[in-house]
Amino acid sequence: MSEKIIVNGNEFEVLKPQGEFKLISVEDHAIHYQTPMGRKTANFFQNRKSGETYLSIEGKTYCVNDNRQRKSKRAGGKSDPLSIVAPMPGKVFKHLKAVGETVIDNETVSILEAMKMEHPLKAVKQLKISKINFNEGEQVKTGDVIVELEEISQ
């Protein structure tokens, strides 16, 4: 079975590096190496607390989560249509819908207030509100599920 790692939030298969790269030297945050195209330098930083390795290669940043068994602890995530998740820490400013009400695609369910701005949190398809976990005025952390939704039974 192939191993997987998370790079910038997306899952990739771990590939065996080909033999065409050679290490030259390592400094504090720089790694010099030989490629078929000539010498290159990448910068890196390992955050041992979070298990993330950051790399900058030719002006592009790669945040690699190599903690392989560790699945994202966030409930839902933005791919889950049944959860309205806080994308950042803030305060629930307003719920535009009550439990039992329905929302349509791209309709705002709740408004999060963070950094003195209002961020509308929207539904991705037509659904019914099943549960509100945080009331207006309550503080939320990144990844908290603010509102739960359910499919509309026909």
Binding site: K16, F21, I31, Y33, Q46, V64
Partner: peptide, 26 residues
């Protein structure tokens, strides 16, 4: 992803602790 990413990750893994961590020296 760039070809060298996995090569670099392997090399970084070999670096002993103490190098490449938080440092205010540079």
């Amino acid at each position: 992803l760039p070809e060298e990413l996995f090569f670099l990750l392997d090399e970084i893994k070999k670096i002993p602790k103490g190098l490449g961590k938080n440092s205010k020296t540079k």
